[in-house]
Amino acid sequence: MGRAGQAAAITMEDRLKMEPILDIRNLEAGVDNRAILKGINLTILPGEVHAIMGPNGSGKSTLASLLAGREGYQVTQGSVTYLGQDLLALSPEERARAGVFLAFQYPVEIPGVNSTYFLKAALNEVRKHRGLPEVDAIEFLSLVKDRIRLLELNEDLLKRAVNVGFSGGEKKRNEIFQMAVLEPTLAVLDETDSGLDIDALRVVANGVNQLRRPDRSALVITHYQRLLNHIVPDRVHVLMDGRIVRSGGKELALELEDRGYDWIVPTEPVAA
């Protein structure tokens, strides 16, 4: 499978030896017989951060939803392989336990479900899957306090119901906070930057960067380039009308910021 650009530190030879974290091949999917994704190819290797940019309606959020397992989409063609297994065959909770995390574009308010209780239950599900014992209360508290500082959130939120009464920025930071606690192998950030002011953006980006490891990857979906100043991607892909029409290094994002999307004329699908 060819690539349109060259990733910096890793040679082509290294790449071929690595098992991808995520491998999307010729993915076609839609809702109610309406095609949205029209043949996506995308391979993310361990340690890589990929960015997907594109105009509204190009299919960015559909891709994120599909990866997380949201109901209501039909996959008509292609495959999604996560660490060697068929991701699409797994339920949302199985994906989460296997290490896939979606930071929601619109985090859901869940009145009456306490944040700490919820997060502890979630962490224990993930740990159970990894063959680890449940965390005890003290361990858990010290972990969440550490991570909550990373996101510069008020500890008070742990006592509140999930996302209830949170500001827009707090909700987004709370997503990354959850991610920092659950330590996923593949983080999918769906427009995490939307609605964030520049300070919050920096905090969120810092949180994501702190979690970067050679064995973890991220797919950052964004409308704007500015997030990518802070979370520097290895690869940038442009999604238009359900296809990746261009891929490149981080400089591609700058070019998009400069020139918009109009100069890219979707022609033949490009292998990513």
Partner: peptide
Amino acid sequence: SVFYLRTRGLPVETARRMLIHA
């Protein structure tokens, strides 16, 4: 809401019960 809880690893029945209980 059910989907949100499931994406954090909670089984669907647990997610439903959490919401009902809430």
